[in-house]
Simulated scan of single mutants.
Amino acid sequence: MPISRRNFMILGAVTATAFAMPPFISLKAYAASLEQPAMSKVTLHVNGKPQTLDVDNRTTLLDALREHLHLTGTKKGCDHGQCGACTVIADGRRINACLTLAVMHEGSEVTTIEGLGMPDKLHPMQAAFIKHDGYQCGYCTPGQICSAVAVLKEIRDGIPSHVSPSLTEPPKLIAAELQERMSGNICRCGAYSNIIEAITEVAEVPA
């Protein structure tokens, strides 16, 4: 018997639904499962304090810090890991908080700009940025400062870069070295020379 176009379309829709739905689950249960996100409990040590959160497994570390812990110093810029505004220090390494999930950092030590220093007690890097006008609009500044603090640790630990690929001795503190290491942090206002001056001043102070 010939199949009409209408019946063919109905048959196709029913077949597609059958393959799309998990077996032995009713349509109502399947719809409910789509509405309920998978949640997890995660404990982070943020700025020296333990923080236990119930988060959607898809929550980025950036959103956990900003939306759950209200630490809004860490900025959401591009949300694609291209600008560096969301840079924080996790277990001693700088990372883009927008590119990693909160649940991946169970037990991690996370330091945000608030953990480095506050107005009444500035971190040396924060003070240097102010002294050298290392910012204009200031939106990228928290990420710049967190990255700069981590950069100096990388240099002191002898971690290589494209400018200094050798592991035999610590990299030399030169502008090109700092520019290379800070290249993941974009300043749309163009305060790059002042940023390098600020980092250089802090680097010259014995650790």
Rank of each mutant, 00 (worst) to 15 (best):
S4F: 07
R5G: 00
F8K: 10
F8S: 12
L11T: 15
V14G: 04
T15I: 13
T17D: 01
M21P: 00
P22L: 12
L27C: 06
Y30M: 13
Y30R: 06
A32D: 15
S33E: 15
Q36W: 02
P37Q: 10
A38K: 15
V42Q: 08
V42I: 14
V46K: 02
G48Q: 05
K49E: 15
P50E: 07
P50I: 13
P50C: 09
D56E: 14
D56P: 07
R58Q: 14
R58L: 12
R58H: 13
T59I: 11
T60H: 09
L61H: 01
L62R: 06
D63K: 13
L65V: 03
R66P: 03
H70C: 09
L71R: 07
L71H: 01
T72D: 08
C78L: 12
D79A: 14
G81F: 09
Q82G: 11
A85G: 04
T87I: 10
V88N: 02
V88W: 01
A90K: 02
A90Q: 05
D91L: 11
G92A: 03
G92C: 09
R93S: 13
R93Q: 15
I95K: 07
N96P: 06
A97C: 05
C98P: 05
L101T: 06
A102I: 09
E106K: 07
S108D: 04
S108V: 03
E109Q: 14
V110S: 04
V110G: 01
E114P: 04
P119F: 09
L122N: 04
M125A: 02
A128C: 08
H132C: 09
G138M: 04
G138V: 05
T141A: 03
T141E: 06
P142E: 00
G143W: 02
Q144Y: 00
Q144M: 05
Q144W: 01
C146H: 00
S147A: 15
S147Q: 08
A148N: 06
A148G: 08
A148F: 06
A148K: 01
V149W: 00
V151W: 03
K153R: 14
E154L: 04
P160C: 07
P160K: 09
S161K: 05
S161L: 00
H162E: 14
S164M: 14
S166Y: 11
P171G: 10
L173M: 15
A175V: 14
A176H: 13
E180V: 01
E180H: 13
E180S: 08
S183T: 10
C187I: 11
C189F: 13
C189I: 13
G190C: 09
N194Y: 04
I195D: 02
E197F: 03
E197R: 10
E201N: 01
V202T: 02
A203F: 02
A203G: 08
A203V: 06
A207P: 01
